[in-house]
Design a binder for these strands. Sequence first.
DNA 1: CGAATCTGTGTAGTAGAACTACACGACGAT
DNA 2: ATCGTCGTGTAGTTCTACTACACAGATTCG
Lengths: 290, 290
Amino acid sequence: MTDESVLELITGRQDRMRPSERKVAAAVLADPAAVVHMSMAGLADTAGVSEPTVMRFCTGLGFSGFQAFRLGLAQSLAVGIPVTHSAIEPDDPVEAMAGKIFDHTLSSLDRTRRSLDTAAVAAAVETLVRATSVHFVGLGASGIIAQDALQHAVLFGVPCTAPVDLHQQYMAAAMCGPGEVVVAISNTGRTTSVLEVTERAKRAGAAVIAVTGGPGPLADLADVAIVLRTFEDTDIYTPTVSRLAGLVLVDVLATAVAVRRGPAHLERLREMKEALSVFRGSADGSRNVT
Amino acid sequence: MTDESVLELITGRQDRMRPSERKVAAAVLADPAAVVHMSMAGLADTAGVSEPTVMRFCTGLGFSGFQAFRLGLAQSLAVGIPVTHSAIEPDDPVEAMAGKIFDHTLSSLDRTRRSLDTAAVAAAVETLVRATSVHFVGLGASGIIAQDALQHAVLFGVPCTAPVDLHQQYMAAAMCGPGEVVVAISNTGRTTSVLEVTERAKRAGAAVIAVTGGPGPLADLADVAIVLRTFEDTDIYTPTVSRLAGLVLVDVLATAVAVRRGPAHLERLREMKEALSVFRGSADGSRNVT
DNA sequence: CGAATCTGTGTAGTAGAACTACACGACGAT
DNA sequence: ATCGTCGTGTAGTTCTACTACACAGATTCG
């Protein structure tokens, strides 16, 4: 599993390619979905080159042959074409926009999955398991992630907070003692307020887990830094995928910690989930999300 | 694009299959990743049947042949194997759990994408464009979606609210007038409090958009019902994907509405995003998410 | 400035793959 | 008990991916 999609790979290398291979690249980029169902001869024909050229194109990309290339391309497409390759146009109908946004989200989460540093995640889990209490801090979209993490508090098994107010965040950080953990969330990793809160928490003796979109001040500051790589939000139309990646990470952390806490803890959770069904009219207690 | 993954398709049909085809199904289900790189002869061999049987298996599933089947399988796998087919075990290492949760999330969002009723989304956009103000209501995980929607309020271009408190939600609903829109979010679609709020909003003359995980009381009540199909959360280990699907939908609605509001509105948005950079130490104004 | 080499491309051939027509055996029905 | 049908494997065919080789153009070195 590489951390780059086939489409990215082609785009990146096409200027280093030989002229005729570049023709193939153009043909693939023009209509990737069609290429998936083509034979080698078909692609060679539409690109206006010979079959061996297509073959060289595939091997040059690192694939063992045309078959492997086609398979890889199919997988990249399944996960969705990022908006980098199909931007959202103002006059798109709603269906097209929905499709593009879902595609972009999926491919972006796919990148996060591929580039995720599992060792860092494991370290974070270890830290959280040892924690006596956990504080989630973040502003804006990252604040949403913090609030969502709080909803999973029962899974973490220790008292959790996620103050929405910045001052309250700072107060919580300042009152931290050893054994407490602060999870600082910021996609940019350079939101000054969050950095200040984090610094204060460290000084107070708390362990800091940073959740960020890339290296930066926040990651440097933290004891454990989890980087969530997504496709950058360059355009105004571009949906903000970073918060989704954050939520998935919350899922991972919460379940991993819950599992580590042992079967007794899980049993209590199950009972709690069943009890939640009183808020619903039907007696269907198997569902667990409102 | 069908709304079922290949793995689901096989699982669903395997009891209606002929004995030898069932062998093939078992072989595929046992190690789908390996099958992707097999030849027809290879699969026939590991399943203990002849090549034409494999062929019949593929055509029986609705594929034109083995090639098409293998391609479809590859795409299903790229999107991730849902936990239905690879459950989370308590003694999984963190890396495995992270992988499975990401896989499950991706495949679940893929299902949402495939089964999304774009006509309903278009209708919702239409309703929102006409709105004089919008209120988002929901509790628990769905409350998170409401809060996230509020973060996109600027995109909607009209005053938005998303009260966290249930009573405040009810009050907002009761004070609605014609032209106002209530977006009611509930994955189960049967959370009684949310139903009450929604009913009250309708009586007050507001248009109601329901965001729910399936048909039910809430969907019946709404003027426009958007159903987000995900993989059901049956297990306690299972991550809760419904909120992610909700967030993506929020993205879709927000961008679609913003685009519909015209270029002047978009220009104001761009300026606002640039202004947001003052909260960051660096002068990097191109990023837009904290 | 010319010859040699090397890079880039297409041609021809081959092994193997996917797909198809057919035949055999087993089971159920009349 | 025999006929028919359903399920399965065998043998053959076509088309596919892949490979070895040869030619043309550019480049470089004598």
